[in-house]
């Protein structure tokens, strides 16, 4: 196989399927790279994920060890971001909290995106009674305010990270199903789908191999734009005591337990606040950049 080079990627006469695919991806990357804000967003997201993954290496203290003599300390060389109300190191808790918070976001997306995609594509492609049934179910979920419905789910189950993930996932999928259905309705009537139908392929094969891939770009954009609201919902559940339970560090929970000190020891709640803000903003910038690159209507 030829060496991977710029010329190989940009060749207008690819010699294999893999080269054609990578060439197309490289073109997308080149387009994405022209948007500095989006690249910054991507860099921040990757950096946060790397920091969270490397938490055991980078943490200066055990995030669970209390030191009541040294509570609410301001940032110092010993405790880089100070300590919380129980004397635990904020920097270490922030790193480990990133694992929980970002982990929840990733788990929600892994649950939600395929579900929304399949429900939407099937409803849009099948039409008729299947479409009506699936869309009314979607409407039922859409009719409730997101946080309230998530609260009700968590209250029905026992509070914890898993229940929070399931609750957020249950409330987050309907918009994706709607989006995928709308895309499918336009794709369904194109000649290229008619041509696949003329090969005698089964509806399931047509949906999975021909329709769903066309819905993916807009869904990807929507997911990245929604990441911030998923983070905020996760943090909100944590803040209300229904997400991660103490002593597990989670950004929302960290703000909740430190909110009493916002006037005197303001850095204690502000630091996880900045983390949430930065992550949300980075995901939004990334989503905007992806939309410019992936949205088929803009190409």
């Amino acid at each position: 196989m030829a060496a991977v080079s710029r010329a190989w990627l940009l060749s207008d006469a690819p010699a294999s399927r893999a080269q054609a695919r990578w060439g197309r991806r490289y073109q997308l990357w080149l387009a994405f790279r022209r948007n500095p804000l989006a690249v910054a967003g991507l860099a921040v997201v990757l950096a946060m994920l790397a920091l969270a993954l490397a938490a055991p290496l980078l943490a200066t203290h055990d995030p669970g060890v209390q030191s009541l003599a040294n509570r609410l300390a301001p940032p110092s060389s010993e405790h880089w971001l100070g300590t919380d109300e129980l004397g635990r190191d904020s920097w270490s808790r922030l790193l480990y909290g990133g694992r929980v918070t970002l982990g929840m976001v990733v788990a929600v997306v892994i649950l939600v995106a395929p579900l929304g995609l399949i429900v939407g594509c099937v409803a849009g492609y099948a039409g008729g009674i299947v479409d009506k049934l699936l869309m009314r179910v979607t409407d039922v979920f859409l009719a409730f305010p997101r946080l309230i419905l998530a609260l009700a789910f968590v209250a029905a189950m026992k509070p914890g990270i898993e229940s929070a993930v399931i609750a957020i996932a249950l409330t987050a999928w309907p918009p994706y199903a709607r989006l995928a259905r709308a895309e499918t309705l336009t794709i369904r009537n194109t000649d290229y789908v008619a041509a696949v139908q003329m090969t005698g392929a089964s509806p399931w094969r047509i949906i999975c191999r021909h329709v769903a891939p066309m819905c993916l770009p807009s869904l990807t954009v929507r997911v990245t734009l929604d990441m911030s609201s998923i983070i905020l919902t996760a943090a909100g559940l944590g803040f209300l005591g229904l997400g991660a339970q103490p002593p597990i560090p989670e950004w929302g929970t960290m703000i909740a337990s430190a909110r009493r000190f916002i006037l005197e020891q303001w850095w204690v709640p502000v630091i996880p606040g900045i983390a949430i803000f930065t992550a949300s903003l980075a995901f939004n910038l990334l989503g905007d950049g992806l939309r410019d690159v992936l949205d088929p209507k803009q190409r």
């Binding site: 399927r17 194109t190 041509a195 066309m214 088929p296």
Partner: peptide
């Protein structure tokens, strides 16, 4: 319109 835009 009759060729899938994302397929070689």
């Amino acid at each position: 319109g009759s060729l899938h835009p994302r397929q070689t």
